[in-house]
């Protein structure tokens, strides 16, 4: 069954007539021509399709496009401003935090969303209850665990995210583990 809707992707509106079955991921990749978000598993098990929905990291493979009218979707392609790279993207290049690059746009979006969550004071599974987490190796690794990387770049992803994190006074967030 088809329906009409407008998707707002990376600041641009796209008017579509779309199958109700179409996921946001397939709408991006197969209808709109934005292939930044990747399909790795199509079932929410790898994170390669991660996008930001109204600033929050979500999985576009488990999101039906028809539910997304009015949402602000950002892909890794639309993260940078004025044609430049987002600091997280630059840090990924500097730290060689990827190899094949297929999980990378999802990792980048996830890192951007995760840093915002951290800035909002959200805890993770490894945060000592009742404390405010330092953004150390274990915190980043746990918070980024929804993004699988088969090339095994985790040991570079963690320092890349750490380097891109906004510095806080009196912390050593940028330091190596």
């Amino acid at each position: 069954m088809e329906t009409e809707l407008t998707l707002r992707i990376d600041g641009q509106d796209h008017h579509l007539t779309i199958d109700t079955r179409t996921t946001l991921l397939d709408a991006l990749r197969e209808r709109i021509g934005n292939t930044s978000a990747k399909k790795g598993c199509d079932h929410g098990q790898c994170g390669a399709c991660t996008v930001l929905t109204d600033g929050r990291r979500t999985l576009s493979c488990l999101t039906l496009a028809v539910t997304q009218g009015g949402a602000e979707i950002t892909t890794a392609e639309g993260l940078g401003q004025d044609g430049g790279l987002h600091p997280v993207q630059q840090a990924f290049i500097d730290h060689d935090a990827f190899q094949c690059g297929y999980c990378t746009p999802g990792q980048v979006c996830s890192a951007v969303g995760m840093l915002a969550e951290y800035a909002d004071g959200w805890p993770s599974a490894v945060t000592e209850p009742g404390t405010t987490a330092e953004l150390d190796h274990d915190e980043i690794a746990e918070r980024m665990s929804g993004n699988l990387c088969r090339c095994g770049a985790y040991a570079n992803i963690v320092p890349a995210v750490q380097a891109a994190a906004p510095r806080r006074e009196g912390t050593n967030a940028g330091g190596a583990r």
Binding site: T63, G113, S145
Partner: peptide
């Protein structure tokens, strides 16, 4: 926090 991933918990 032990469940799923950050993305899935947001959904």
């Amino acid at each position: 926090l032990a469940g799923a991933s950050g993305q899935l918990r947001n959904m």
